[in-house]
Structure formats: C-alpha cells, structure tokens
Design a binder for these strands. Structure first.
Length: 427
DNA sequence: TCTGGGGTCCTAGGACCC
DNA sequence: TCTGGGGTCCTAGGACCC
C-alpha cells in the first residue's frame, strides 16, 4: 500500500567499501592505510579501501598481478572473512528495519527503503540514519534518494563522489537533469560492458542522454530491461521494492580448488560437500527438487593443459530435500561426466526447479522419504547449534585436500568465543 | 606458480505438436 | 528459386548485479 503512493521516494543505503570497513572495526591501525580483501583462495581483489581505489587498482584483479604495488604502497591484504561480514551486515539491517516498515535487503551491504516526504524530512532523516549506523556499528554508509530504484542508485553513486563527507544525495525535480548529465552511462545500474559499448556507438554517453532516449527504440534494439532503465531515469518506477522474504529460484554451491585435482575420490568429497550444503539451504526455505545439476571444469587459464567443462542434469522419480538423496544423485552425476587423467580446478552443484513443500506430489509407487527427511532436519538442528559440519556424511571426507586457501584471515571477532578481541595492556 | 561465488532475468533456438 | 505455418515448452547461454 505505502509503496504505491505516488509521492513516495526510494532510498538506498550502501555500506562504503564494506569488507574493508568490517576489517577496520577491530583493527584500527588499518585506518587510512590502503587495504584490500581477497576472494576465496586468496585469488582476486573483491574489496578496496578508498586509498586503493585512488591507486587505480581495479576490482577483480588477481592479487599476483599487483604484488609489486602491494609492496611499494604497503597495501594491507586480507582473506575474506564472511562470518564476520555476515554478522556485521545483520546488525546494520536490524537498525534499518527497526525504523522502517518497508525494507528490501538487496545484498550483504545494501538495502532499499521507501520514504514518504509528507511524514518526514528526508534529508535530515538520512543524515541521522547514517550517523546512527556509524556510531552503533562502526561502518560508514552512503545514502542515495530518488523517485525510482535506478535514480536512488545514481544518487548513491553521486553521494560518494560529490559529497563524501555528508554521504547523502537526493535527486529532486530541480537538480536531477543537471546531475544526470555528470553521470557516465556505464555507471548506471543495469548498464554493463556490452550495453555501454552499444549505447556509445549510438551517441548516448551520459545518464541524461539515456533518460532522453526514445524508449521504443531502446526496447527494439536492446531489451525490455533497458527500456525499464529509461523509464526509471524518467521517474517512472518499473522495478518494484521486494520487501517480503523471497524464496530462491536456484541454489548453487561451488568452489575452485586450491590446486588441480585429478582424483575421483577427492572430487566425490567436494561434490558431496557442495550437495550437502545446497540441501541445507534448500530446507531453510522449505523447498524440494525433482532434479539437480552437477558440473566439473578444468582451469580455463591454463591453455597448456587439455580443457574440459561438463554439466549434467540428474532427475528423480519424486521430489526430495534430504541430504542423503541429494548427495547420492550428485555423485551419480559426477560419475557420468568424470573423465580420468584431467586436471580439475572447480566443481559445483546447482538446484533448479525448486518447488515449495505444499506443491510436492505423492507418488503411487514410492512413499515419501520420511525417515531421510527426519534425519536431515535433525542434522540441521545440530549443525545450527554446534557449527557447520559438526555432523556430516562420510563421503564428504575431510576438506584438507580440496578446500580453499585463506592465509590472511582475520579473527571471527563477533561470532566465535575463541576469537573475541583481546587487548594487551602491557606497554 | 597464483585468476571468486551466488544470484536474476531475458532471448534465441531447438524439439515437438497439430 | 521455391520447400507450410504457427503455437508452446524447454534449455543453454549471455548479460548483468553484488
């Protein structure tokens, strides 16, 4: 109801350099030092402090390619610590949810809310919220406000660029066109590399150019999504705020290996661990599946080695959600696509076609896997209480041989009693 | 030597049917 | 040169996002 009022505004609250900011909370010596956080296996840069951005180091670059810069500029390097980031995120979202009826948790570090300017001074509310989040969690955020999600995202981008101290930018009737002129087309939400190339070829360089583009032309030569972007730039909402819990349509778990793997039994360990994790996620949203996908692939960067990528779908006679059944199917799929003597770098399990528990059809010839489901839900309860993989299936093996490398991991300051911050008072 | 993971949505094209 | 036409359903793959 509230979101359909025409005078509603949308705000996006976005944490600045989120993973780096999380590391800084418990490690003040990192303030003002160039700092990066790496992806799994300590592979690529996935978060950069402002100082690192200013050095021109791009997002996603493999760390080994900038090793010389790390040394020259004394860049602080951390493995990703998702249990810490997830916990800090939860605290920030709770602050936002406590004061706003309609919140969309868009990603680990972003939330959309609706604001009604009739009931609130939007600008001072945003400034207060920003201060409160910083004071209560130590995380700096930026807030952008506009009539649509796309405009709010642009306002957020402008807040970081034009008003880094205030951290708030509001696009209104008066300033919108002037500000849109200063935003490059590639900085618009929903415009990636391919669309940027196409738009520039057609003389569209700024957000203002795209706002003024003919929506029919855009729909014909691009996609319906791009047309929605044009409408949203014009203040016509096309992308709804999703403030309810939405079940995932696909669930996937995958990892690259620390080293290349040729052994089938190690691949079985990895695939069954991914299957078990996916099954757990499936049950938290009360889902069932009638098929799943398994894939393996070699290292695509090693053009000196034979390349192989294969995906397979395995179907079940009836819908299941128990770990044993899902592992069994995934292993069966793995055996069908495994080729000996190749060097594998990655594998994964994907659950598609997820249905809700109340849509599951009973089969005439099979009874529901009641025993297996009960067992799985008991294991979930235990693992939730005592930690991931307290109980697991034997085929999951021990992860040493294939699990990820995290050599520069910070402590789990907020989620593990053994990792609480300790302060040494000795001089 | 070393290159992430987990999602969503759209479209093109093939299979199949009448 | 022509080779029927039109619908639906499904899947693979691309583009994009964080």
């Amino acid at each position: 109801m509230s979101s359909t009022k025409p005078d509603n505004l949308i705000a996006i609250i976005d944490c600045n350099n989120f993973y780096v900011s999380c590391e800084r909370i418990f490690n003040p010596k990192l303030f003002n030092k160039p700092t990066v956080v790496l992806s799994n296996n300590d592979g690529c840069v996935i978060a950069r402090s402002q100082e690192v951005k200013e050095l021109g180091i791009p997002m996603g670059i493999p760390i080994f390619k900038i090793q010389h810069l790390v040394e020259i500029h004394d860049i602080q390097v951390y493995s990703s610590n998702f249990s810490l980031y997830g916990d800090i995120s939860r605290r920030i979202m709770q602050i936002i949810q406590a004061e706003n009826p309609s919140v969309e948790l868009y990603s680990i570090d972003e939330a959309f809310i609706t604001l009604n300017p009739r009931y609130r001074d939007v600008e001072s509310y945003c400034e207060d919220l920003k201060k409160r989040i910083l004071q209560w969690t130590g995380i700096p955020v930026s807030i952008g406000v506009g009539k649509t999600k796309t405009l709010a995202k642009i306002a957020n981008h402008l807040a970081k660029k034009l008003y880094p101290d205030k951290g708030v930018c509001i696009l209104d009737e008066i300033n919108t066109e002037e500000l849109l002129q200063r935003v490059k087309v590639e900085d618009i939400w929903g415009v990636g590399r391919q669309k940027t190339k196409f738009l520039k070829l057609n003389g569209i360089f700024s957000a203002l150019d795209l706002k003024r583009a003919n929506p029919f032309w855009v729909q014909k030569h691009m996609t319906i999504i791009s047309r929605h972007t044009v409408d949203e730039l014009n203040g016509i909402p096309k992308i709804e705020l999703e403030d309810d819990f939405v079940s995932k349509k696909t669930i996937s778990t995958s990892r690259s290996f620390r080293k290349n793997i040729s052994s089938l039994s190690v691949l079985e360990n990895a695939v069954s661990s991914h299957a078990a994790r996916a099954a757990e996620k499936l049950r938290t949203q009360k889902g069932y599946i009638t098929s799943l996908g398994v894939y393996v692939s070699t290292n695509r960067f090693r053009d000196d080695l034979p390349q192989y990528r294969q995906f397979i779908t395995v179907n079940f006679p009836l819908a299941i959600n128990d770990t044993a059944g899902i592992i069994q199917a995934a292993i069966q799929g793995l055996h069908a696509i495994f080729i000996p003597e190749l060097e594998y770098k990655k594998c994964g399990v994907i659950l598609n076609n997820i249905i809700r528990d109340n849509q599951v059809q009973e089969s005439l010839f099979h009874s529901r896997r009641n025993k297996e489901e009960l067992l799985s839900s008991s294991i979930d309860t235990i693992n939730k209480a005592y930690g991931l993989n307290t109980i697991k299936y034997a085929i999951q093996g021990s992860p040493e041989s294939w699990s990820i490398k995290r050599e520069k991991l910070s402590q789990s300051y907020t989620t593990n009693w053994n990792d609480l911050l300790s302060i040494n008072l000795e001089p």
